[in-house]
Simulated scan of single mutants.
Amino acid sequence: MKIIVKAAIGMAAMLVAAGPSWAFPDRPIQLIVPWAAGGGMDSVMRIFAAGFEAELKQPVNVVNRTGGGGITGHTAIAGAAPDGYVVGGISPEISFFKALRLGDLTIDSVDAFSRVSVIPAGVTVKADSPYKTIADYLKAVKDSPKGTLMASGTGVGGSWHIASGGLLKAAGVAPDAVKWVPSNGGAPALNDLVAGGLSVFTGSPIEAKAMLEAGRVRTLLLMTAERHPSFPDIPSAKEAGLDWTYENWFALAGPKGIPAERRKVLFDAAARTMQRPEVRKAMADRGITPVWDKPEEFAAYVTTFTERGNGILRDLGLAKN
Rank of each mutant, 00 (worst) to 15 (best):
M211R: 15
I77L: 07
G10W: 10
A300C: 03
P82A: 09
K320T: 11
M274K: 06
S114W: 08
P182E: 06
A12W: 13
D83P: 07
K256N: 13
G69H: 01
A251I: 07
H161Q: 00
P182Q: 03
L252A: 03
P28S: 10
R314T: 11
S95C: 13
K142G: 05
L198E: 03
I162E: 02
R218T: 11
L167K: 09
M283E: 06
G311N: 06
G309K: 03
A269D: 07
P277N: 10
R216F: 01
R227E: 05
M11S: 15
G317S: 05
M211A: 08
S230I: 01
D26G: 11
V217F: 02
I71L: 13
S117D: 11
G311P: 00
A76E: 13
I9Y: 09
T245M: 09
G68L: 02
V110L: 13
M150D: 00
S159G: 13
K139E: 01
L193W: 03
V156G: 00
G79R: 07
W35N: 13
P175W: 02
A177M: 00
E93V: 10
G311V: 08
S95Y: 10
K320N: 10
T289M: 12
D143A: 14
S43A: 12
Y137N: 04
P188G: 11
G186S: 15
A163V: 02
P205G: 04
G38R: 00
Q58R: 15
P59T: 00
D83R: 04
S236Q: 11
I234Q: 10
P232I: 12
I234K: 11
G122Y: 14
L220S: 02
T66L: 04
F267L: 08
I77Q: 03
D108H: 12
G88Y: 10
L313Y: 06
T306V: 05
R276Y: 06
H161W: 02
L222C: 15
K146I: 03
M45F: 13
L222R: 09
